[in-house]
Design a binder for these strands. Structure first.
Lengths: 147, 147
DNA sequence: GTTCCTGCAAAAGCTTTGCAGAAGA
DNA sequence: TCTTCTGCAAAGCTTTTGCAGGAAC
């Protein structure tokens, strides 16, 4: 399993290599995303960091995430209807959204191995898989409420 | 192959059964979606119908699509970052978005047969698969431009 | 006649833009 | 010192809401 610190070090090295300045705000956004693997929204990152950085603005978070996405260090997730979510995991995996608690779960799936005949001749750059339903925790909670 | 008229008849019957009034605007939105299988945005439906119905408002299109989604006759597609797209095909299939021409292509894929070990114990209601890249038409156009 | 729908205007919410001052290298 | 970043304010866009008049049944 890849350690958390190792991942942050890997990321800051990548920023240096791409000549992206290691500002206090950027490092804190990265640290937040590394420690809170909840596919956070801009709002969640903002509230998670505003105590530590009282002058922080949402604009900076938007700017930072845009920079990180262009650097390939963060991906956006369009599973939510209104707010964009962001993922620090950039390797191929699927997402499940619980319609009750709104949490998003990762799942492993090898999308590259799925051959789609209709897409012969298409150049595929990105593959996303979004499932939705009810997670085990919420199924259990509903069962207890019903009794 | 399912005929187009047959599909519209099927849909209006379903509206009647669910006690949803067959207003002029609703029927026109359904007709538009049936004849323009481009996964249209609200804007596209609006511009496609405003000549025919000069008094039409976007609010009505939003209302109509919401009603049709609740009736299970239309699905929303979250493949676009800013605008929601809508699909009159409600059976399980995947979507490919061309990053050059922005067109969205359907592809056949049996998502129900894909077993995800990480999701044991999850109740899955919806499965979506979004791919993106370049479509054959745009690959060919780029090749011609390069020469 | 009653219920539900339409469409205008306004508001709400997420995201982007312009720019002056501040911080990074 | 020079370049880039931050954060405020304002604007831009899509979508939602409230409500009076109108259409469906």
């Amino acid at each position: 399993m890849r350690g958390m610190k190792a991942n942050l070090e890997y990321i800051t090295n990548k920023l240096k290599n791409k000549n992206i300045r290691l500002s206090h705000q950027r490092l804190k956004v990265l640290e937040y995303m590394d420690q809170h693997r909840i596919h956070p929204t801009v709002e969640q990152i903002y509230h998670g960091l505003r105590d530590e950085i009282p002058t922080l603005s949402k604009t900076t978070i938007y700017n930072t995430l845009k920079t990180l996405m262009e650097a390939g260090l963060v991906k956006s997730i369009a599973i939510d209807d209104n707010e964009t979510r962001y993922d620090i995991r950039t390797d191929s995996h699927g997402h499940f959204k619980c319609l009750t608690c709104e949490n998003i779960y990762d799942f492993e799936v090898n999308m590259d191995s799925i051959k789609i005949e209709d897409l012969n001749g298409f150049r595929i750059y990105a593959r996303d898989m979004y499932f939705s339903g009810i997670c085990p925790k919420c199924i259990e909670q509903k069962r207890e409420t019903d009794n």
